[in-house]
């Protein structure tokens, strides 16, 4: 185990009860009304390349009961691994299929969505939730999404985007109720793309 350093010890929630509650409510709002960025209260200060928002979501949802997969950018950082281990206790898994959460700092090199746990027909909840840090959201352009949580279809894109992402998303949606859910985070914002969200253009 890496030696404890100040970087490891610091940067967690200073008030875990209320900060995790606030982050959870933001994530919940984001998944309840998908493709609509909502403010994510700034709170965590993790070591790079883990972003503040990725760190905050991890602190809020991950713990010793949830194996976490790290994308190569994050997995390469001892500081990130030590910080997550210290603050969440979540075991890190190298197998995306075993992950309750996948933390992704480099969205352009996201593995195919099908590489992650999809759940089963009887237990579709046994699937991976991807938490992906992006640079920005685009709600003016981008494809139209619809489904539960949409009063009317909304445009949404998260950049940078992996090549072929929309095809993968359509395939993910076709698995419903199986499939993965995505929580995108950008600077001070969170947006959800639960498996129930579908591309309006494919209808």
């Amino acid at each position: 185990m890496a030696a404890l350093t100040a970087d490891t010890l610091e940067g967690g929630f200073h008030d875990p009860v209320f900060q995790s509650q606030a982050v959870f409510r933001a994530v919940m709002a984001a998944l309840a009304e998908p493709a609509r960025p909502v403010p994510l209260p700034p709170s965590a200060r993790p070591p790079a390349p883990l972003t503040a928002e990725l760190g905050a979501v991890a602190l809020t949802l991950a713990d010793p009961d949830t194996p976490v997969w790290l994308d190569p950018a994050l997995a390469a950082s001892d500081a990130v691994r030590a910080w997550l281990a210290f603050h969440t206790g979540a075991p890190v898994t190298a197998e995306p299929m075993d992950a309750a959460f996948a933390l992704v700092a480099d969205p352009a090199r996201l593995p195919p969505l099908s590489a992650f746990a999809q759940g089963t027909a009887e237990y579709p909840d046994r699937s991976t939730t991807l938490v992906i840090a992006v640079e920005r959201f685009d709600t003016a352009a981008g494809p139209l999404f619809t489904g539960p949580g949409f009063e009317t279809p909304r445009r949404f894109a998260a950049h940078p985007e992996r090549i072929g992402f929309l095809d993968q998303w359509a395939a993910n949606r076709a698995l419903f109720p199986r499939g993965v859910d995505i929580v995108f985070v950008a600077d001070g914002l969170v947006a959800g793309l639960p498996r129930s969200a579908r591309l309006a253009t494919t209808e």
Binding site: S20, L61, D63, A100, D125, R195
Partner: peptide, 23 residues
Amino acid sequence: EQTKRMIRRAILKGIAIPGYQVP
């Protein structure tokens, strides 16, 4: 807090799969 996290995770799954009963 650990219990709340467990319940919060279940709530998020429930929202993603409307009407499905999450254990």
